[in-house]
Design a protein around this nucleic acid. Structure first.
Lengths: 342, 342
DNA sequence: TAATATTATTGAAACGTTTCATTTAAGGCA
DNA sequence: TGCCTTAAATGAAACGTTTCAATAATATTA
């Protein structure tokens, strides 16, 4: 294999200079720089990652530990194409900086916490990206106690000691409610994500604020907790439709569960978008193609991922700045919402 | 940080012994083993990955370079939940062995080939998993020329110098055709994946073999090349339905494009599953929930991923055995196929 | 021109493991 | 008991970088 020694010899300089070429090129004279880069070119040299890492204590890797549940398809964080969009955004940011993504998911045999501890203990990554934030997130506690840098997609309740990227879920919901009210809806149900998720509080706030603004008085059964799965959306919508005074519009936790809601409506021989309106969350690609096409609160998943990647790399490089980036959502109006016939 | 030195001191042995504890425990006496493992426990020791890697030339990482297209949503390999299922399978296998997955996707700025070269040159991974195999796959050529171990999901045409996991796509298609013929269909169209993919030949073989067996004589326009996207499925189905003598059943490259086909049929005010039958490929979770639910050729993506992971780890450990594992598909019959009314 | 300041380069000591030739300890046997 | 075999444990030399004090070369100033 080609090493820095070889490059040094070939370029007629010392290994130290070759190292400088990579790590602080500004200290290398232009002439030498050319010689070294020529040698690298002709010998097709790539610095040995482990050797770099050992000496420098930097891996140039960012870790992510999604939850992919194997037993059922009700995975929590990485259940659908939303995750892929997010990943793609991260990847773009990392590629730009020559970083790679280390992905390790929990399994039935290997606990999530163990993975974090191992990855950090073994010095496998320089920073981590967390998603699916919980209100009292044990991962945050763990990483915090280990003093390990991380970035979160979503807040995590307690405080602002860490950097995060998030969306303004509250105004997303408000915009959606405005839209529904403008279409004549008054009986609006809200299926919210599980209470343990930090995003849930935001969204509930948005719901109640909009309800107040529009003078709505949601019936008790209208606000229900749901999961992110299609089955959950379907089951809860069935319950909503069985209410003595069923809602005419339903907000769901994500697009996938919205699909379930649409199914439940069709199975009741009702007309989604006409009799009952449905709004999703995420704007995943297939939401445009479902029938009826889904009105949904769009979050810029690629940009969010990208920003997470950028922040993670900054952390990895030792920058200790705190940033909270908030993206706004926008409502994509399609056919699953419609004017309420009187 | 805790190092082997510390463990050695704490356990009253030499560092060599601690190393042996990890790498060839059978050479360490039971008594010593206990002492060392106690020390590891109390000091919460994790071996430094880079140091291990530097000396041993093993990273305990497997690389994967999916194609996630950013510009449009027409990504090639990792477009949908099928990829996540596959990933989940890989992850299970790797977790079992203490390996991690290094994921790096091409972007508009960073070419695929560069990534492979860098990952290998930098010694970032011990083996790679390839997917979306092409008939003449440049990645295979590259890895082969670098003598770098890899495993493929799908064949790659020329020969059997490498290990692969694949499905029997041919009989999958045949089973689907049998099902359609049994339902009374004679005019069956076949949208196949792009010709560059190695899977395409298999599937075409299956199609023609079944056609022959059943004495069908597909019209020229019935066999068309499609992509894996919903748009493609929709567009091509529109063309098929515009034929002077349109087909009564359509086989598609994957579930996602099958959804497009269903949409096209509905938009023509035809009844999918009644007037026109559609069969997908993959059996991704949402195929059960689409309306009508999708009849599809199921491939065991998690098991396939798992097997890829197992083989990759074997390669990573230096085993040089060639294996070709073929999974069989099975037809999942749902509502998108139905008896043809005369 | 000599002295000084600035800029480039060097070389050797780490970093935390693995590896393997050696040494030490423990049994087995006559 | 002494000799031989086997099993365990040792210690030091790598692995390929980074880092930094020290040196060399060059430029600047009076």
């Amino acid at each position: 294999m080609t090493t820095m020694r070889d490059i040094a010899r070939h370029a007629g300089v010392s290994v130290g200079t070759v190292s400088n070429f990579f790590n602080s090129p500004e200290t290398v004279s232009e002439k030498t720089r050319k010689q070294v880069s020529d040698a690298i070119e002709t010998l097709d040299f790539h610095p040995h990652a482990a050797a770099r890492s050992l000496k420098s204590n930097r891996t140039r890797r960012i870790g992510i530990v999604p939850v992919i549940s194997v037993e059922s398809n009700r995975s929590l964080h990485a259940e659908d194409s939303a995750f892929l969009e997010f990943l793609s955004g991260i990847n773009t940011a990392l590629a730009e900086e020559g970083f790679d993504l280390l992905l390790s998911a929990a399994t039935s045999k290997v606990k999530e916490t163990e993975i974090y501890q191992r990855l950090i203990g073994e010095h496998q990554v320089d920073a981590m990206i967390l998603l699916g934030m919980q209100k009292h997130d044990k991962r945050v506690k763990l990483l915090d106690s280990l003093n390990f840098p991380f970035v979160t997609f979503g807040q995590c309740g307690n405080d602002e000691k860490y950097s995060s990227v998030d969306i303004d879920g509250s105004s997303g919901i408000i915009e959606a409610m405005d839209h529904l009210v403008a279409l004549g809806h008054q009986r609006i149900a809200f299926i919210h994500p599980p209470k343990t998720y930090s995003m849930t509080e935001q969204r509930l706030n948005g719901f109640w604020e909009a309800a107040k603004q529009h003078g709505l008085n949601p019936e008790p059964g209208y606000v229900m907790e749901g999961a992110f799965s299609i089955e959950s959306g379907q089951a809860i919508t069935e319950k909503l439709l069985a209410l003595p005074n069923p809602p005419t519009a339903i907000l769901t936790p994500n697009d996938i569960s919205a699909f379930g809601a649409l199914n439940a409506i069709k199975m009741k021989k009702l007309n989604p978008g006409k009799d009952i309106s449905v709004i999703g969350f995420d704007n995943i690609p297939s939401s445009a193609f479902w029938q009826p096409s889904l009105t949904t609160i769009s979050q810029p998943l690629r940009e969010i991922g990208n920003e997470c990647g950028i922040l993670a790399v900054e952390k990895a490089k030792g920058k200790n700045n705190l940033k909270s980036i908030v993206f706004s959502t926008h409502l994509v109006i399609r056919d699953s919402t419609g004017r309420l016939d009187p």
